[in-house]
Write a protein that binds this DNA or RNA. Structure first.
Lengths: 353, 353
DNA sequence: CTGAAAGCGCTAACAC
DNA sequence: GTGTTAGCGCTTTCAG
């Protein structure tokens, strides 16, 4: 069977000697068609390889079964995994996906993006762009009366807005408390770029953990990277200059943590005996660093698939005429994976990847 | 200005006191509209925030300015970068993107995928799924008379099929020749899964380089991984068992190479003095391994953007009624980045990332 | 310069 | 059970 030329319902109807309406009924599995008519039509459909036009259908039904998905930074691991979760869940639930990638994280003029997606009659939008700088300012203004629901991934929770995010504050706190339990006391932090909400949350977790143990977080114990390995090394150098007597560091992501481990080792510090390192993200490779890296895992795939489940729920509610109930933010809990880079006291407790 | 409800051309026409055709002319920038009529209509459009329906347009014009994109394995670095290149180039050229991700690399029943994309009236398809197992068998059968052009990323070249791929054979050859030049002589190989075309090509490059230097490649000098760090370690262990006296290894990708470097170091081998390692892919982190990893770089972003340029060219040719000329495969050349993990003789030659 | 009619491919609402 | 009519939102063709 070849796909050759796109054929129309009219052609099927003619070949089967019925009206298009009857073909439509067969396509939509309506019961009110005579069995033998149905069979005849089915045969014709199979023969000429007919496939109904999703476009025409969307137009008449005012429903496209298509999701608009907006992402940014696909070259980074996190956003890519999230998109992975989105695609598989969308597939699962029978939705097509119109994808738009923002060229920059801090794009603020997002109205054309919405317009574009809406012009394709998407039923709902998944906003999978991390909160950076002021790129959420529009939410309150523009978003209120969009004709379709929107679900946000990874942003600060707001009154009555559907949001799915990991609890970065908790993650940071867990990382630092673990280091404290392992006996490290002068614990620094290398943050991601501080215009990122996630970076600020992780840093706040670092501060909270220290404070909780009666240690005052020092300004000079924290420097800022830009997520890349290269920036991690630079930030570490700067950190050591400002605070040479640190005995551990909680690093904002695994990529930076990797270069920190290397730089610390090269500087003569023994890890974990003299110096502890904890990362953030849970990249699979972290199990194969020298030494293997303790890290905070967030399942970004899950983040994406949950967002799709949620948006589809909202779409269906809307379509069923339900009043849009209050929607609360969902905060997922990250997980601590303990490996060699931080286990000064309890090497026996090391978990495998 | 709010987006509120989707408004129609009819509403604009009514508000401006003209017919819908005139509004249509303004939208499409036709010259034959009186300037003052045009201004009036423009004002109304801006006021009510009207946006033409891409759907209705696609239907009547028989052209959607939408690309179908099929990918697989977004959780891996390579496919994600390629998609990144695709999205940015599609955006650039004014095309929307309908994304489908295959759940498995070796999906063979791809007809529903095509049908689905075609039902959305995509103008062309970018097939960004690596060639694995027999997942190209359908090409000759089904593909001949598709109603839209298709461009393939990363597959074996075929008569008259538009394909964009990196020259993996050349890459493998370059890696091994570099090791030979550095004085290593017993060079093993850890391949990716051998049902992947890319893996086989890289391995063939390894064989060709050795043969070219008058060395007979041994069967026991090659083991197989599955791209993951974990599998790299296992494959390396097995390799050493079979051939304990290897003095270097060319590893099929960087993820596996990372764990090989670690395992080799742990086994007491000094890198690069006693043992050389070269990877494949050019992950940015490789510059921060201990020691930094020599690798073969392929720009996967470029791969994606080139594919889009090509598919758009084909679409435009088709639409302009040009006969579809012969299309040849494009083989991009990978690049060798020399770092410490392989420079036994020429440490001075080390390039930075 | 502008509008009226027809129709892209399909389905909802009503006939018969 | 099945066909007819109308119309989703737009553009093309042809009058005027």
């Amino acid at each position: 069977m070849s796909i050759n030329k796109r054929s129309t319902m009219k052609q099927v109807a003619k070949a089967a000697g019925v009206s298009t309406q009857t073909v439509s009924r067969v396509i939509n599995e309506r019961p009110d068609v005579a069995p033998q008519t149905r069979d005849r039509i089915r045969k014709v459909i199979a023969e000429i390889g007919y496939q109904p036009s999703a476009l025409a259908r969307s137009l008449i039904q005012q429903r496209s079964y298509t999701l608009g998905v907006v992402t940014a930074g696909l070259k980074y691991n996190g956003p890519a995994r999230t998109l992975n979760g989105i695609t598989s869940q969308a597939e699962e639930l029978g939705y097509a996906m119109l994808l738009k990638e923002l060229p920059r994280f801090d794009t603020e003029t997002i109205e054309p993006i919405f317009q574009n997606l809406l012009s394709h009659h998407v039923d709902g939008i998944v906003w999978a762009v991390p909160q950076v700088g002021d790129n959420r300012r529009w939410v309150t203004d523009t978003l209120i009366d969009l004709p379709v629901p929107v679900v946000f991934i990874t942003m600060e929770s707001r009154q009555n807005l559907p949001i799915i995010a990991y609890d970065n504050f908790l993650g940071g706190k867990m990382a630092v408390e673990h280091l404290l339990q392992e006996g490290y006391r002068r614990i620094g932090h290398i943050s991601g770029p501080l215009d990122w909400w996630e970076s600020r949350q992780r840093r706040a977790g670092w501060e909270a953990a220290l404070t909780g143990w009666g240690i005052e977080p020092q300004k000079t114990d924290c420097t800022e990277g830009n997520w890349s390995s290269a920036s991690g090394e630079a930030a570490f150098r700067q950190l050591l200059e400002q605070s040479p007597d640190l005995d551990a560091v909680f690093v904002g992501n695994d990529q930076m943590a990797l270069s920190v481990v290397r730089a610390a080792t090269l500087s003569g510090r023994k890890i974990p005996a003299q110096f502890g390192v904890v990362g953030f993200d849970g990249l699979p490779e972290t199990a194969y660093y020298s030494p293997p890296l303790t890290t905070i895992v967030q399942d970004q795939h899950q983040l994406g698939s949950q967002a799709v489940v949620e948006i589809v729920r909202l779409i269906q509610n809307l379509h069923a005429g339900h009043p849009s109930e209050e929607t609360a933010a969902v905060l997922l809990k990250p997980e601590l994976i303990v490996r060699e880079s931080s286990t000064r006291l309890h090497p026996g407790q090391v978990h495998s990847a």
